[in-house]
Amino acid sequence: MEKENVLTKLKNYARKLKHNLFVLFLSYKDDRVPWYAKVVAICVVAYAFSPIDLIPDFIPVLGYLDDLIIVPLGMSLALKLIPHHVIEDNRAKAEEMRKNGKPKNWFVGILFILIWIAFAIWIGKVIRTIVL
Rank of each mutant, 00 (worst) to 15 (best):
L26D: 02
F107K: 10
K18C: 07
K125C: 05
I127E: 03
P83N: 09
A46E: 03
K3L: 13
L26G: 02
R98N: 03
L73Q: 06
V33K: 00
F112V: 06
L81S: 04
G109W: 11
A118V: 07
E2D: 11
W35C: 08
K99V: 09
F22C: 03
V39G: 05
I55W: 05
K18S: 14
K99G: 06
I127C: 02
N105V: 15
T129K: 15
I82W: 04
P83F: 11
H85E: 15
I115L: 09
K16W: 15
N100V: 09
S76A: 08
E96N: 08
S27K: 02
L24T: 01
A118N: 13
I82R: 03
P83I: 10
L77V: 08
P51M: 04
L81I: 06
M97A: 04
A120K: 09
I110D: 00
E88Y: 15
V108C: 04
P34F: 07
L24E: 02
E88S: 10
W35F: 13
A41W: 01
V86S: 03
Y28E: 02
R128A: 05
Y47W: 05
V71D: 02
L65P: 09
L132M: 14
I70N: 00
K99I: 11
R15A: 15
S76H: 13
K38W: 09
R128M: 05
D57T: 10
